[in-house]
Design a protein around this nucleic acid. Structure first.
Length: 276
DNA sequence: AAAACACCCTGCCTGC
DNA sequence: TGCAGGCAGGGTGTTT
C-alpha cells in the first residue's frame, strides 16, 4: 500500500527515465478505475501527446508527471495496488495494466492496478485538479511543530484519523500513522485537539518513520514495488504494524502490541507506551 | 462545519 | 481438494 515513502521511491526511480521523453500515444484498457469512474483518455491525450515529460514530482501520495511547460501534466494515484513502471514496448504487459503512455524511442510508461483503487487524470494546469488543491502540507517539507499544533487545535476526531486525513497532512497512510503515534507515545484514539501539546513529538515521530522508510526504499507487505519492480526493505523495521501479540520493542516487551479496529481499519499500538 | 460511514475492487488467506 | 467468506484500506461522496 503505497504511502509517502513508497511514492517518493517510485518518483526518484521514474524521474531519470522519463525526463525529456516525448509521448506518442495513450492507451486505456476501457476498465473504470477509482470508484468505478471512466478514465478521461481524451484528456490524457490532449495534454501529453507530442510533448515531453519535463519532471516527475510527488505531492502527498500523488505522482505528478509534468508535461511540457505551463504546469500541465498527468497525476497518478496508486491506490492500494497500483504500479507505475517504464518498460520496453516489447516486454509483456503485466496483468491489470490499465493505462499506457507510449514514448518515442520504444519504451512505455505503464500503470497497472489489480484492485483499481488507483487513478490517472489529466490536469491543465495540474494544480487545478480538485484532489491536489485540497491537500495539506507535506510533513517532510513546509510543516513545523507550531504549524502542526495549529492544525490539530479544536479537532475532536482521533489523532490517528487526523493523520490519515490528507487535507490536514499529506502523505501518511495506515502503516506510518500507527508507527509515528507509537514512536511519539500517543494513544491513537486521543482527540487530535487534546494531543496538540505533543505536536512536536508527533512531528518528530512522523519524520523519523517516513525518512527511515524512504532510506529503506519503502515497505512491501505484498504488492508494492518501485520503478524497477523491486520491493522495499522497510517491513522488518516496523515496530507495531502487523505485529499484534508480539512484545513491544519500545518498552522492552513489558507489554504486547495490541490491535483495534475502527471503521474497518486496523490500528496497532502499545497500551503501555501509548496511554489515553 | 465537522464527523461518520458506505462504496469501489481483487487476491490472498483461513476455515469448513 | 475446493470453495465460501473475511480481510486489506486508499479517496470520494453522502448522510448525520
Amino acid at each position: 500500500m503505497p504511502e509517502l515513502p513508497e511514492v517518493e521511491t517510485i518518483v526518484r526511480g521514474l524521474a531519470p527515465r522519463l525526463r525529456g521523453r516525448r509521448v506518442t500515444g495513450v492507451w486505456w484498457s476501457g476498465r473504470p478505475l477509482h470508484l468505478a469512474r471512466p478514465v478521461d483518455v481524451e484528456g490524457l491525450r490532449a495534454v501529453s501527446i507530442g510533448r515531453a515529460f519535463a519532471d516527475v514530482r510527488r505531492l502527498g501520495k500523488y505522482i505528478l508527471l509534468e508535461v511540457g511547460r505551463g504546469g500541465a501534466g498527468v497525476s497518478v494515484h496508486l491506490g492500494m495496488t497500483g504500479r507505475l513502471r517504464v518498460q520496453a514496448a516489447g516486454e509483456a504487459r503485466a496483468p491489470h495494466t490499465h493505462v499506457v503512455f507510449t514514448l518515442a524511442g520504444g519504451d512505455e510508461l505503464r500503470f497497472a492496478d489489480a484492485r483499481r483503487f488507483g487513478w490517472v487524470a489529466a490536469g491543465d494546469p495540474l494544480r487545478a485538479l480538485p484532489a491536489l488543491a485540497e491537500l495539506g502540507p507535506d510533513p517532510l517539507d513546509g510543516l513545523d511543530a507550531a504549524g502542526l499544533a495549529a492544525r490539530m487545535e479544536g479537532v475532536r476526531a482521533p489523532v490517528k484519523a487526523f493523520l490519515l486525513d490528507q487535507s490536514r497532512v499529506a502523505g501518511i497512510g495506515n502503516i506510518y500513522a500507527c508507527e509515528a503515534l507509537h514512536l511519539a507515545g500517543i494513544h491513537p484514539a486521543t482527540p487530535a485537539g487534546r494531543a496538540r501539546g505533543r505536536a512536536a513529538a508527533l512531528l518528530d515521530g512522523v519524520r523519523t518513520v517516513l525518512e527511515g522508510a524512504i532510506a529503506r526504499r519503502g515497505t512491501t507487505l505484498r504488492d508494492y514495488v518501485d520503478a524497477d519492480g523491486m520491493g522495499g526493505d522497510n517491513f522488518s523495521a516496523l515496530l507495531v504494524y502487523g505485529r499484534e501479540g508480539e512484545p513491544c520493542p519500545r518498552c522492552g516487551g513489558k507489554a504486547k502490541v495490541k490491535r483495534s479496529v475502527d471503521g474497518g481499519r486496523s490500528t496497532f499500538f502499545c497500551g503501555r507506551c501509548q496511554k489515553r
